[in-house]
Design a protein around this nucleic acid. Sequence first.
DNA 1: GTTCTAACA
DNA 2: TGTTAGAA
Length: 145
Amino acid sequence: MESKKILHNVFQNIEVGIGEVSKVVGVSQRQLRYWEEKGYIKPVSDDNSGVRRYNLSTLYLIVFIKEQLDKGFTLAAAFERSKDIRVKSKIVRTFFEHTFNDVKITNPDKGYGEIDLGELRTDDGKMYHFKGVVDERGRYVKIDE
DNA sequence: GTTCTAACA
DNA sequence: TGTTAGAA
C-alpha cells in the first residue's frame, strides 16, 4: 500500500484515553464527559467497555474548544465556531494532500523547497506554473512561465 | 492505578 | 464545573 495511505490510516486510528487528553490539553475529565453529554464531542464508538477513547479529529476539536474557552467564549459559542474550522480544515487538507506529492527539495540542509501548486493556461495560450516556495526569504507563492 | 456514574457543593 | 463516593 502507498505509504501516504498507510500513515493516513495510522493517524486516523490513533486513540487517546480521557486521562491523557485531560492532562495534555488541560481540560478536566468532568468537562470532557459534560461536553459529550451536550453532544459536542463523541468518543470513538467501539466496544462495550464503557471506557472513553478519542480519535485525532476529536482531539483537534477538544483543543480548539479549549482555546476558545480560554479566549472567553462560552462552551456553546466555542462549539459553534468549531463548525467553521472543521469545514475549513477539510478544504485545506484536501488541497494539500493533492499537492504534497509534487514537492521539490532545493536545499536539504536548510529545509528549502518548492511545491508545485498547479498550472494556469491563459486565453492567449500562455502557460504558467504556480509554485509555493520555502527558502531564505520565507514562505511565498510565485508564478513561473 | 484509572475510569465510570451519580450526586451534591 | 469541581469534587467526592463507591464500584468495575
